Computed example of a mutant assay.
Amino acid sequence: MEGIGLTIIIYLIGLFILYIIIETAVRRGINSSIIGLYLENKYGIQDTREKKNSFLDDDLNKD
């Protein structure tokens, strides 16, 4: 019974890692494609996830 639970956990972790890899590849592929660049230029559509500022941008040590 313990082996089955461990197997399921490892399987789910593997699926999650695979999801992250595929999602990143598709997003980068669409953004760098000709159609993606056309839509960005024509409609001003941009990926907002990459433009967010972090709290580290206003760090006091930055000065």
Rank of each mutant, 00 (worst) to 15 (best):
M1N: 05
E2P: 05
E2Q: 11
G3R: 07
G3P: 01
G3W: 05
G3M: 07
I4V: 11
T7S: 14
I8T: 07
I8L: 05
I8N: 03
I9H: 05
I10A: 15
L12H: 07
L12P: 02
G14M: 07
L15Y: 04
L15A: 06
L15W: 04
F16M: 08
F16D: 06
I17Q: 00
I20K: 14
I20L: 15
I20P: 04
I21S: 08
I22C: 05
I22Q: 09
T24M: 12
T24P: 04
T24E: 12
A25C: 09
A25Y: 13
A25F: 15
A25E: 12
V26H: 01
V26P: 00
V26I: 15
R27N: 11
R28A: 12
R28E: 14
G29E: 10
G29C: 11
S33T: 00
I34H: 04
I35E: 04
G36Y: 01
L37Q: 09
L37G: 06
Y38Q: 01
Y38F: 05
Y38S: 03
Y38T: 04
Y38R: 12
L39N: 03
E40Q: 11
N41A: 04
N41T: 03
K42H: 03
K42M: 05
K42C: 00
Y43T: 02
Y43Q: 03
I45P: 01
D47G: 01
R49K: 13
R49G: 14
E50A: 13
E50F: 09
E50V: 11
K51R: 11
K52V: 09
S54K: 12
S54Y: 13
S54Q: 10
S54D: 12
F55G: 05
L56K: 04
D57R: 01
D57P: 01
D58F: 06
D58Q: 02
D58M: 02
D59W: 06
L60C: 07
L60V: 14
N61H: 08
N61W: 09
K62D: 07
K62M: 10
K62S: 14
D63R: 13
D63W: 14
